[in-house]
Design a binder for these strands. Structure first.
Lengths: 179, 179
DNA sequence: GTAGTCATGTAAGACGTTACATGATTCT
DNA sequence: AGAATCATGTAACGTCTTACATGACTAC
């Protein structure tokens, strides 16, 4: 999948500048791109060339001008086509599992340390996500109750992934200790 | 993370040719790279330059020659250093969640179709993994009971991820129907 | 005075994929 | 006859990341 659909999605919510989009990407987990300049600005320029978005330059005093991007009719159509396309299977890459796979080269205590470090990282992620959900400061267009529910469930999806990982880790540790 | 550690890991198990490694990657989920020629052969050449592996050319009649790669002492050291390094957090990319996020543009029945398609894909993945585990034909060095257990738990990790996803999907569907 | 925000853009490079290239052998 | 396996390698390209570049303003 491509960042362009995520950008078109944001613009289907409301108009944004590249700078604003960049921050939205940087602060979200669902929209998993880093939010680096290169990708955002060049994608916007390309979408503009293809007529999927228009922009309006807003001059400001004492601040740089901003380009406010708006979705066009054909942009909306293009996005909708993608929304209806068959979902891809999740791409899950856990380099920790690769470390574990070759942990035969490590001692029992080195393995335990490795697992503990990973467990700590996962717990931190979980805390972050739970805190974001609790504070309700996660991005959420919330145009309808359905949309609001869907965005909450998207947050919940991440939380459950981490919870499932922790449950798995507890079992792993317990059985390794008994071995 | 880099494919080179995964390759060094395989070679810490036993010697392999590039072609064999390619198939190992293509058939495994944990070692999530596609197993394309370019990456494998060029990485092996680079590892050889760095002295982390050596190779021995084996000429065969009626078949192309093969280069059998073996881990060196310094390759083993290099791998071990990485094994001891702090695990990265999992990289989870679910483009389906991006589709869901902007599903405000879709009708209720279009959303349901989308969810059903995704559910089907996840179920298929789960079946595949369960079947692989049941048949016991998944790659597993199984040099010690500890290693055998760890590799089984790695398979289990994938199965649980998909099970957790399905449980989440059931809840999503149920509540969207009631909304 | 150092760092951060606002705002846009470019350059260089890492990582990964598909496809191209060769050529004999074996299976259906 | 056509496809797959064995075996190595290269080319072209897509995607994403970090870092560079500018310049004014604001906050500590």
């Amino acid at each position: 999948m491509d960042i362009k659909y995520a950008i078109l999605g944001f613009l289907s919510w409301k108009s944004f500048t590249g700078y604003e989009l960049k921050k939205l990407f940087a602060n979200s987990m669902i929209f998993y791109w880093s939010g680096n300049n290169n990708q955002i600005y060049t994608t916007l320029i390309q979408l503009h060339k293809e007529g999927l978005v228009t922009n309006q330059v807003q001059h400001q005093e004492n601040l740089p001008s901003r380009k406010i991007y708006t979705l066009t009719e054909s942009g909306s159509e293009y996005l909708k086509q993608w929304l209806l396309s068959s979902p891809e299977i999740p791409q899950i890459r856990k380099s920790f599992l690769v470390q574990l796979a070759w942990s035969n080269l490590l001692s029992q205590s080195e393995i335990n340390t490795l697992i503990e470090k990973y467990e700590y990282e996962i717990k931190m992620q979980l805390l972050m996500h739970r805190e974001k959900k609790r504070r309700g400061d996660a991005v959420n267009p919330s145009r309808t109750s359905r949309e609001n529910y869907i965005w909450k469930m998207i947050s919940e999806n991440f939380i459950r992934s981490y919870e499932s990982e922790l449950a798995w880790l507890r079992e792993l540790r317990k059985n390794l200790d008994e071995l």
